[in-house]
Design a protein around this nucleic acid. Sequence first.
DNA 1: GACGAATTGTCAGTATAAGTAACATTATTC
DNA 2: GAATAATGTTACTTATACTGACAATTCGTC
Lengths: 121, 121
Amino acid sequence: MSALYHRVREARRLLGLSQESLAAELGVSRSAVAQWEHAAGTSPSVDHLSALARRSGMCFEYLATGRGPRILGEPMVAEPAAEYDALTEQQKQLLERFRLLSPRQRRALLELIEPERSSLR
Amino acid sequence: MSALYHRVREARRLLGLSQESLAAELGVSRSAVAQWEHAAGTSPSVDHLSALARRSGMCFEYLATGRGPRILGEPMVAEPAAEYDALTEQQKQLLERFRLLSPRQRRALLELIEPERSSLR
DNA sequence: GACGAATTGTCAGTATAAGTAACATTATTC
DNA sequence: GAATAATGTTACTTATACTGACAATTCGTC
């Protein structure tokens, strides 16, 4: 599943517009659009995202979340249930980094965040 | 058509979660969720709204604008996905203790165990 | 290759939206 | 009535969406 900033650029390219042109149509500055298209940049507000979806003909759901058909009327691609992850992104990140620790470090960490402990609470 | 703050509460209730539980899953404080549910409160960012849509199975467009179908698919049960059962006891313990931390403490912890960091590696 | 135009990338600054923590209130359970 | 859980509210802090300006890259033309 692509990230939001990928989908924003995808929508703009679908329209064959430059950042400048799209910005003019949405009523924002060119650099706002530029920032929407970068991982480290800002995200568009809901209003701007909605306006972009309407303008590009892209499904709002797809644009915002990456789920569902790209274009209105496009055949639905079935998503595996696994896409609805129970773990948050932060929890996944936690488990990933924890996995890289040595057993001793893992025990130390668990001890550090034990409830009623003063270090981090 | 209901207001955003109504729909946010609708989504949370659909999941059968308290404000506290939902906040933990989305990685924000309980009072942020409380404010999302009030007319005079703040609105969730696009990232949080998207996360709530994913978690609740509700359409992002419905959540964001009140338009369109309510549900994308069956809402996920509050119980973790099968992958949780694949976790070790230590990993489960980690997630449980992590869940009890405040958002600021969680970020501090993740930073602490970031790869290439010296503190615990 | 040079050059100019078009396009995109990046950054510092700003206003305010969104978030936090702490305290207050209400609801629920026993 | 007490204890606990859940929610409401507020003052304050932090994050961020956006802007304008400057930098860098890409593209088209000669």
